[in-house]
């Protein structure tokens, strides 16, 4: 049984239709990368899974549970973590700028019992030692890389089965970006399935097991990541 199964999904924002008949599956323990040009609807697909978009028809099943009509908090409980793009489709960053690093993590652990939340918090700070040093600093004073580390840690606070990451390396220096990619690998090695949206297709295909390509709200490719390269991706996007 796949961890994530999407069937014939049509979704958007209110009356604004974005996704057209998307069907895809992500297996447990893999890194699935979702590629495509700007405006293709990648973030909208993640929003739809997270319960933040309007779903017109189709279904989304996570770990055998139908979450198509569930609320964001129910979806989180079922085991979906979401690190939004920054800025996201609602125009806000993927952290709470006015809160300290530690408070950001506390906010991300809402609904988790106190002792489990504290454990997750220590684990998150352990995964990114830099954050531990900065834990009492307001998030708005962090660098771009530190912000992404924080956002990823926040996505992990509820120990998700599936972690969705939307362009976590956007705007980062190459060195910092490769730190983020290796963090993503270690999260996968913790047994967490990853659905990763990336602009850096070469790097993403390197760490990915499976790849999807979306263009204007439709799925153009679904298959092993190693059978896709930048040239083929270019042709898919140009519609050849």
């Amino acid at each position: 049984m796949p961890l994530l199964k999407i069937s014939e999904l049509n979704a958007g924002y209110g009356k604004f239709h974005v996704l057209n008949g998307i069907s895809l599956e992500v297996e447990r323990g893999e890194i699935a990368v979702l590629l495509g040009p700007n405006g293709a609807g990648k973030s909208t697909l993640l929003n739809a899974i997270a319960g933040l978009a309007t779903i017109y028809s189709g279904s989304i099943v996570v770990d055998g549970k139908d979450i198509t009509r569930s609320s964001p908090s129910e979806i989180q409980k079922i085991g979906v973590g979401y690190v939004m793009q920054s800025p996201n489709n609602f125009g806000t960053p993927n952290i709470f700028p006015e809160l300290t690093v530690r408070e950001n993590l506390v906010a991300a652990s809402v609904g988790v019992p106190q002792d489990a939340a504290e454990k997750a918090l220590e684990e998150a700070l352990g995964l990114f030692p830099k954050l531990k040093e900065l834990q009492n600093r307001k998030a708005k004073f962090l660098s771009g890389g530190e912000r992404q580390m924080l956002a990823i840690s926040m996505g992990l606070m509820k120990r998700p089965k599936l972690l969705m990451l939307d362009e976590p390396t956007a705007g980062l220096a190459p060195k910092v970006a490769s730190d983020v990619f290796s963090a993503i690998r270690s999260i996968r090695d913790m047994g967490i399935t990853i659905l990763l949206v990336e602009q850096n297709a070469r790097k993403a295909l390197e760490i990915g097991d499976r790849a999807f390509v979306m263009v204007t709200g439709r799925l153009r490719y679904s298959g092993p990541a190693k059978e896709l390269d930048e040239e083929k991706l270019g042709r898919l996007i140009m519609g050849q």
């Binding site: 997270a50 933040l52 964001p72 908090s73 979806i75 989180q76 409980k77 979401y82 939004m84 996201n88 609602f90 125009g91 806000t92 960053p93 993927n94 952290i95 709470f96 700028p97 006015e98 809160l99 408070e103 950001n104 506390v106 906010a107 991300a108 809402v110 609904g111 926040m154 509820k158």
Partner: peptide, 23 residues
């Protein structure tokens, strides 16, 4: 308090708060 943190988070960035499962 945790509620206070959640409240300030909701004021600071409501879309993200929703995405994190905050009501």
């Amino acid at each position: 308090t945790k509620f206070g943190v959640v409240m300030r988070a909701s004021i600071d960035n409501a879309p993200l708060a929703r995405a994190l499962g905050i009501d």
